[in-house]
């Protein structure tokens, strides 16, 4: 039974409903079917047995380790950076704004090449590190650096925008009440922007976890050292298909979880507003 409000009132309206229905179903199927196909391609028992494959475990742990380190660095450095950037005017601020956004539009492979040109053994800075026997490219550190470069804008943009939008009256009032700048930041500014910061952090985590192009260019594809989950998928598709499929499904599950967390945080924020 079609609800009264949805019953077509005339021919033109029914055509609109039909077009809208076709469009919604088409877009939904276009987005959902590849995911369904991924899950249907591998039998459940095969999926669970492949989870014990050393390549899968190694890639999983390396991805989780590098992504968590990336997230911690981005939050610890990005939060005060975004705060100062939003609060102060300084020469070249527009350029810094553009640089924050650049990794979002830059092809990841180009980001990887750029990092290699800077930190590689013969790179602009890397050559000096190399003189002291310190190698950065093609190490786990390079994986983290590539993830930070590519994923940090998600957090920085969000944090910057949150701090800019917060009415200065809250911080000013806290200061007149005797609160130091640091205490004001910790007790007023951060709690009032926490929901948005968490959303930004979760999106950064997701982007870092899926990082492929910059990592393969700058860190290479060494199992156990730089071979993260997306890289292991690539290798798996050329060798053991089930390894590729199992890791892909793991990434889909993690991505879904991330989106659910973001939605829940946004819902909670909307409830508080």
């Amino acid at each position: 039974m079609i609800p009264h409000s949805l019953r077509p009132k005339n021919y033109r309206q029914s055509l609109t409903y039909l077009a809208a229905g076709i469009l919604i179903v088409s877009v939904t199927l276009y987005l959902a079917l590849p995911i369904v196909a991924l899950f249907l391609r591998i039998p459940p028992d095969q999926f669970f047995s492949t989870l014990h494959n050393p390549d899968v475990i190694s890639a999983l742990w390396l991805s989780l380790f590098t992504t968590v380190v990336t997230l911690v660095v981005v939050i610890l450095v990005g939060t005060p950076f975004a705060y100062f950037h939003s609060r102060y005017t300084y020469p070249g601020k527009v350029i810094v704004d553009t640089l924050i956004d650049l990794p979002l539009v830059l092809p990841p492979a180009v980001a990887g090449v750029a990092l290699l040109m800077l930190w590689g053994r013969t790179g602009l800075l890397g050559r000096y590190f190399n003189m002291f026997g310190i190698t950065i490219a093609f190490t786990t550190l390079a994986v983290i650096m590539a993830q930070i470069f590519v994923a940090s804008p998600f957090y920085l943009r969000q944090a910057k925008s949150l701090f800019e939008q917060l009415d200065p009256a809250y911080e000013q009032t806290a200061r007149t009440l005797g609160s130091s700048p640091l205490r004001t930041l910790v007790l007023v500014t951060l709690p009032m922007t926490a929901g948005g910061l968490i959303s930004g952090a979760v999106m950064t985590f997701g982007r870092a976890l899926g990082e492929f192009g910059a990592t393969i260019m700058f860190a290479g594809n060494l199992p156990g050292v730089t071979q993260t989950m997306p890289l292991a998928v690539y290798v798996g598709m050329e060798g053991d298909l089930y390894v590729g499929l199992t890791i892909s499904i793991l990434l889909v599950i993690i991505s879904f979880t991330i989106m659910i967390i973001v939605r829940l945080v946004q819902k909670r924020e909307a409830g508080h507003a």
Binding site: D167, A169, Y170, Q172, T173, A174, L187, V188, P191, M192, H272
Partner: peptide, 8 residues
């Protein structure tokens, strides 16, 4: 201040 700015 004009906005009473109670901490929500």
């Amino acid at each position: 201040l004009q906005n009473p700015a109670v901490f929500p």
